[in-house]
Design a protein around this nucleic acid. Structure first.
Lengths: 258, 258
DNA sequence: CGCAGACTTGACCGCGCTCAATGCGAGTGG
DNA sequence: CCACTCGCATTGAGCGCGGTCAAGTCTGCG
């Protein structure tokens, strides 16, 4: 996190530099050249800190900004007309939250900090202006949004055609590779979210998530204690994700083909 | 593919004008002023015609263009490493296919014509260049992509928290409103896709789709004969989508709350 | 008219949901 | 230091939605 920064004026704090950020190679700065980085720093509010549970933006509020995660973790969720909530995404350091706010209008989801989290804020109007001026930035924004769309389709596939075990394996593998991108261990993770968020995100009941975790543990795939998870056998997890674990088709399983 | 159009020079064929297109108020032209429309027409290949089943682009091919549907209908699908296919979207006249190709790289899905279909093709590189020059166009592209992301989240919600009846009601209502946008009847539709595509899109078995259609018919909500569907009671369909139809909670139903 | 592909209908059964009870820290006050 | 509580996580019992398998039925087309 970003606390031990020497206390200067708030101005300075908000204008800390992307140059020094360890995530600049995962975040927007990677899109622009050295010369243009100053212009990006010019529109960003850096280093805002949120505590666990703090709301970053709220569904139906006017969408003014999108955010890059600097440290901590964020979850987004939507509430439908029925009143029940679904988690739509988890965001780790280096990732952008609220890209869909570039559609203009209001936020389509609510974003909350899952733990102590610091964010950089990009006002959408300025980001749009700057994208018009910097082709590389525009290209990168298109790239990110395109990827977000693809992620959505992958998610739809996961939710509609895969068993509970496959969904959870997929989530663990996704987290693993995203931890690895940040040069953290891909096998020893601390989940930033409770089981209930995992359940909501994957379209399962909490009980099912819990049961699958214990099943994986008994099979020696993971070692889990609360939010501390060790992935003991990545290839096996990938096999679970791909074809539900066993090559021997013991019996018919849910959703075997379409 | 492009046969029964009066034979002129290919040049003329490809440069038919957005000015005259009845969909210009649903499509990209709506984003740019009269003066800039020529520049959009300049980069578009108009009026390419595809027959039912023709592939428009293929997953893993180099992503060169996105497409606007002029008439007919398109479906996109992805094939995962397991080899099974999932339909990820249906596209009707006025809608853009392959927006996620703006991520650069390869197409993440396959697009096929569901019936005789004509499309306008926008090369992504030129579209990107032009977006840099025309802020309104860039804004609109961001808008469209942001909406696509939101649609994905809605889809995830539908797939993970809703019953078969709710999913099918939602699809029918979606089609209804999209037909209405084009000033067609919102209650008498001809489905452009077979049941199997509906099933794949909604994460259901074909048999289930069929059963729900007959159930809806018996309840007087729709009248369906093959792909001809009449929506007899839109409010009731909306009620089904929202809370599974009945105000009396007769018994516990799948996914009642999260 | 017969064949193929799309759609429908029925029988059966399993995954994952609901309901309900229990285990397990962490924070609080006596 | 322990009793109490509250949130989170785990475990068990029971059952329904929707999937698979397997026949039909309908429709268009050569």
């Amino acid at each position: 996190m970003a606390q031990p920064i020497p206390l200067r004026h708030a101005q300075d704090l908000l204008k800390a530099s992307c140059h020094q950020c360890s995530l600049s190679n995962l975040c927007l700065p990677l899109a622009v050249g050295e010369g243009d980085l100053a212009r990006l720093e010019d529109i960003v509010y850096q280093g805002r800190v949120y505590n666990r549970g703090d709301h970053i933006f709220e569904q139906s509020d006017r969408a003014r900004s999108c955010f890059a995660v600097k440290s901590g973790a964020v979850r987004t969720s939507i509430v439908n007309e029925n009143g029940d909530e679904q988690v739509t995404g988890f965001f780790l350091p280096g990732e952008l939250v609220g890209l869909e706010s570039l559609s203009g209008g209001d936020y389509a989801c609510t974003a909350r900090a899952l733990e102590r989290t610091s964010l950089c804020e990009f006002p959408v109007d300025k980001l749009e202006q700057l994208s018009g001026a910097l082709p590389d930035l525009q290209h990168h924004m298109f790239h990110l949004m395109g990827q977000e769309i693809q992620t959505g389709h992958q998610m739809a596939m996961l939710l509609s055609r895969n068993t509970a075990e496959q969904r959870i394996a997929a989530l663990l593998l996704s987290l693993s590779s995203r931890f690895q991108r940040r040069r953290l261990s891909p096998t020893r993770l601390t989940l930033p979210m409770p089981r209930s968020d995992i359940a909501s995100f994957l379209g399962l009941a909490v009980e099912t998530v819990s049961r699958v975790f214990t099943r994986f543990q008994k099979q020696g795939l993971i070692h889990a204690q609360g939010r501390q998870v060790e992935l003991l056998d990545l290839p096996a997890l990938q096999a679970v994700y791909r074809d539900n674990g066993e090559d021997a088709p013991r019996c018919q399983q849910h959703h075997s083909q379409g």
